[in-house]
Design a protein around this nucleic acid. Structure first.
Length: 212
DNA sequence: CTCGAGATGGCCT
DNA sequence: GGCCATCTCGAGT
């Protein structure tokens, strides 16, 4: 997907993570996400992301109302992880954006496993094809072995169990739509960004709940 | 391909 | 008590 890669340095990455959400989200496509869990390394190339805003500005965001114990990482410095538990069984990974004290995050929705294939397959035995290993936010964390224990880690630190490197150049083709799991106000905000790649989930806008 | 429902538990009102 | 930033399987078109 991104031949002959050059990666952004850490200082430039931190600076970029304080830019407007749409710009960050677009630049995250093609990123390298690496986990080292139990000494096993798995690497994913990011193909799909969604942006989420801060207090009072994005009804679809966990931070919309105020800071709580769960969303605390969203209010921390940029470049950290925000990992949350949902539907009673799934973990999802975000990259924290915005300066500390201001909430913002980008949900990593999908990627292509480019390293540690055997480990990823072992963690995702139900996946029929390799493109399905990290196709979806909870599938991606499962393939990488990411859990709530990694909430709040610095993704730009070489010592972290989960690490992120942004591509020096933006991905070429990017589809921009409304966010997948978001209903109600904010559903139409064009904050989902996807590369042209088979690991990207088919876009399904959240449907309003059926009435009586 | 699409649709619907069950799993399963924490968070927030 | 209601609502999830989801995934999987089975059945239908």
């Amino acid at each position: 997907m991104n031949p002959d890669h050059e990666w952004m340095d850490q200082a430039s990455t931190r600076r970029l993570l304080t830019r407007p959400a749409a710009e960050i989200a677009r630049r995250l496509l093609g990123s390298s996400l690496t986990s080292t869990v139990d000494g096993i390394r798995v690497e994913v190339r990011v193909t799909e992301v969604e942006a989420y805003g801060g207090v009072g500005e994005d009804p679809g965001s966990h931070a919309f109302r105020r800071q709580t114990a769960r969303n605390a990482a969203m209010f921390g410095p940029p470049g950290r992880s925000y990992v949350y538990f949902t539907y009673g069984m799934h973990w999802c990974l975000n990259v924290v954006t915005c300066p500390a004290g201001t909430a913002g995050a980008i949900l990593i929705r999908a990627g292509e496993v480019v390293g540690g294939l055997d480990a990823a397959r072992g963690r995702r035995p139900r996946a029929r094809q390799d493109v399905d290993l990290a196709r979806g936010p909870a599938r991606l964390t499962r393939a990488l072995g990411i859990t709530g224990a990694m909430d709040g880690v610095d993704l730009l630190d070489r010592g972290s169990p989960v690490q992120l490197r942004l591509p020096a150049l933006p991905a070429p083709a990017v589809a921009i739509t409304g966010r997948t799991g978001v209903a109600g106000p904010g559903a139409l905000t064009p904050w989902r960004f996807a590369a042209d790649h088979p690991t990207v989930s088919p876009y399904r806008p959240a449907s309003p709940r059926a009435r009586g």
